[in-house]
């Protein structure tokens, strides 16, 4: 564990807490892509179900349980109590176009040809693009609540710091994970436009609004 990875994980954790606060405080999930949330739940289930047979550390176990539990909670809330506040008409990204290629890539690129390894690869590829429905929704509406942008910023910051973590790990322990690196690079790159608006508008006290 190094400081970059720790802060990255904490940002990831914070992003979910921010999302939960937004949903509780406003009693609404408007502006949040239901598709992205379902995809994240799929990502966590595909990758973290190994919590039952692959022990890494108490920290690792706690985080896996936390992410599966909160993602389930968010999807449950969006299906039930907060259903009517969903931005359905804007959440129009075709999820098939990212799930199918992710599955195909996982069948081609994996460390070993086993069910768990292919699921792991699938989850990594899917996570890289799971934000697309959310960014699409943002583009459709052209603006976002400030708290929603904080959620996205924490989520993007988490992956950006993982890039730094990988560089650090490569030099300190010779750690190499080509699949995660490529996917992580794509994942972080997708946030570029968002970050530009976030830094130039939201952090200066203005509303998030696309030009």
């Amino acid at each position: 564990m190094n400081i970059f990875r720790l802060v990255a994980d904490l940002l990831h954790l914070a992003s979910i807490v921010i999302l939960l606060i937004k949903m509780y405080a406003t009693n609404s999930c408007s502006g949040i892509s239901f598709k992205t949330q379902v995809l994240y739940l799929a990502v966590f289930i595909a990758r973290y179900l190994d919590v039952f047979w692959h022990f890494v550390s108490v920290y690792n176990t706690f985080m896996k349980v936390f992410f599966i539990a909160t993602a389930s909670g968010v999807v449950w809330a969006m299906l039930g109590p907060l259903k009517d506040s969903r931005s359905k008409s804007l959440d129009t990204f075709r999820w098939e176009f990212i799930v199918a290629p992710s599955a195909l890539l996982a069948i081609i690129f994996h460390d070993r040809f086993t069910v768990t390894e292919i699921f792991w690869s699938f989850s990594v590829f899917l996570e890289a693009v799971a934000i697309l429905p959310q960014l699409h929704l943002l583009q459709q509406s052209g603006e976002a609540e400030t708290i929603t942008t904080h959620y996205l910023a924490a989520l993007g910051g988490y992956r950006a710091l993982y890039l730094v973590n990988w560089i650090y790990r490569y030099f300190t322990e010779g750690y190499v994970d080509v699949i995660a690196w490529c996917a992580g690079l794509v994942q972080t790159a997708l946030y570029c436009d968002f970050f530009y608006v976030y830094f130039t508008r939201v952090l200066q006290g203005r509303r998030f609004a696309l030009p």
């Binding site: 990875r5 190994d50 692959h54 985080m63 460390d111 993982y162």
Partner: peptide, 10 residues
Amino acid sequence: KEEDVKHDEL
């Protein structure tokens, strides 16, 4: 063992 340290990240 190599398998034990694999996928130690979240």
